[in-house]
Design a protein around this nucleic acid. Sequence first.
DNA 1: TTGACATGCAGGTAAATGCTTGCATATTGT
DNA 2: ACAATATGCAAGCATTTACCTGCATGTCAA
Lengths: 104, 104
Amino acid sequence: MDDDKVFRALGDPTRRKLLDLLCEKNGQTLGQLCENLDMARQSATQHLGILEEANLVSTVRRGREKLHFINPVPLHEVYERWVRKFERQRLNLLHDLKKELEGE
Amino acid sequence: MDDDKVFRALGDPTRRKLLDLLCEKNGQTLGQLCENLDMARQSATQHLGILEEANLVSTVRRGREKLHFINPVPLHEVYERWVRKFERQRLNLLHDLKKELEGE
DNA sequence: TTGACATGCAGGTAAATGCTTGCATATTGT
DNA sequence: ACAATATGCAAGCATTTACCTGCATGTCAA
């Protein structure tokens, strides 16, 4: 997995909204997603491309339509490999702060 | 919490590295952090400002120094409020995919 | 086949982003 | 006081980004 692509993809509010839309109803077409987006179709296509690059969305063609499916695996991996590390330190922080203020 | 600020802040690799550095040793000064960054001090200051805006980093002045402390709470909240929602759907996805391919 | 529909491709633009340099301010130790 | 150290402020620049428009391709249905 490419951490950087995932984080970058999540950094844009439109792309997070796309994931939200797919979470509500998975397998939507480009056209369906655009109806909720207030921007040109092509802009949405580009955002979806970035999500696909990050492996957060997979697509399947059905005739002239393109169906979009959310893939939560990279999100889970990011959480496991990156976020949890910081969570574990939560309880130490007050201690660290005290220590520093006392002059280390 | 401001989801957008948190996600944007995490979208940059330098800022994630700063969090990594603070995770290894909490309470570092600006100067200490810069030693590991390969960019001008001022660039690091700007990144730290963005992390602070997102409430991912808190600072305390000690004389002429500025100590930086990581704050994992926003990370945890993002996970709870946003990531978990997608994880819960994991098991449904294969089913959704099948359904769509069969013609909905 | 032909017209309507869904998406793909490519180039252009304005704004945001990341980084820089130069100078200012504030604190420390001698 | 003064020199060294640590950080703050602000303007400038190059790249990236998000958005658009115009045209091309592919698919369906009558």
